[in-house]
Computed example of a mutant assay.
Amino acid sequence: MDDKDLELLRILEENSRLSAQEIGSMTNLIPAEVEARIHALEESRIIRKYTTVINWEKAGNGEVSAIIELKVSPERDFGYDRIAERLSRFRQVRTLRLITGTYDLQLMVSGKNVQEVSRFVSEHVAPMDRIRETATHIVMKSYKENGNTLFEQQEAERLPYSF
């Protein structure tokens, strides 16, 4: 991994649909080298997956998202890893992080409605061994996801100027 690989990763994180030719002109690499470096980054699992950022509110799918914070009793010799692995298997769990502060784990989950999210927490998450406490926060509106703004920015309005 060198500076060119880091530059490639930043470019791909911003827009993974750019062609090797476009990336090459941005990095002063020939397209074949861009492709070889990207392939090596994929093989080493540094690049895990390519995704699309979607404004689901605008798409109108009606899903509800929630942030669930968990206080967990860590396991001896495994810490939080085993409980995190179990939680990550649920299709409702979109993101799972170990965090600092009052809570230990943070989940981003989605469901068809608030009742489905509530049922998921009460039936699957809260009863799990080692879960001591949960706090659920319903996401009311997203303004930015993964570095991408989800609202249309208005042109700056020019104020009238007079003497």
Rank of each mutant, 00 (worst) to 15 (best):
Q115G: 02
R97P: 04
Y161C: 01
R132L: 08
L96P: 06
G60M: 06
V53W: 12
V125A: 04
W56R: 04
V121R: 04
L159T: 00
L87H: 02
E123Y: 07
S118Q: 10
S25C: 07
I138A: 02
N113I: 01
R89G: 02
T95C: 10
G60A: 08
A36T: 10
F163C: 13
L98T: 13
P74M: 07
E69N: 03
L12T: 08
V125L: 13
Q154N: 09
L150W: 12
D104K: 05
T134K: 04
K141H: 12
A135N: 03
H137F: 14
T102E: 11
E75Q: 07
I99V: 15
A84V: 11
R45Y: 09
E75I: 06
V114Q: 15
E133H: 06
V53I: 15
Q21M: 14
R119G: 00
D2A: 13
S73P: 02
V125G: 07
R132I: 00
L9Q: 03
A59K: 14
V117P: 13
T100W: 00
T102Y: 12
P74L: 08
A59E: 14
D104P: 12
R91I: 09
E22L: 09
Y161M: 01
I11D: 05
P74R: 07
K144G: 06
I131N: 03
W56E: 02
K71Q: 06
D104I: 09
M1A: 07
D104L: 08
S162P: 10
I131M: 10
V93K: 01
S142F: 08
N15Q: 06
L159C: 00
L12I: 14
K4C: 05
V53C: 00
L70D: 06
L87M: 01
Q154K: 15
R97Q: 15
D3Q: 12
E35N: 07
V117R: 02
D77G: 10
G24S: 06
E116N: 08
R10K: 14
T95Y: 15
I46R: 03
S142T: 02
E133L: 09
I68N: 00
I131P: 03
R37A: 10
A135M: 11
I46M: 04
I11W: 02
R91A: 13
M1I: 09
L8N: 14
I47S: 01
E123Q: 14
A36V: 11
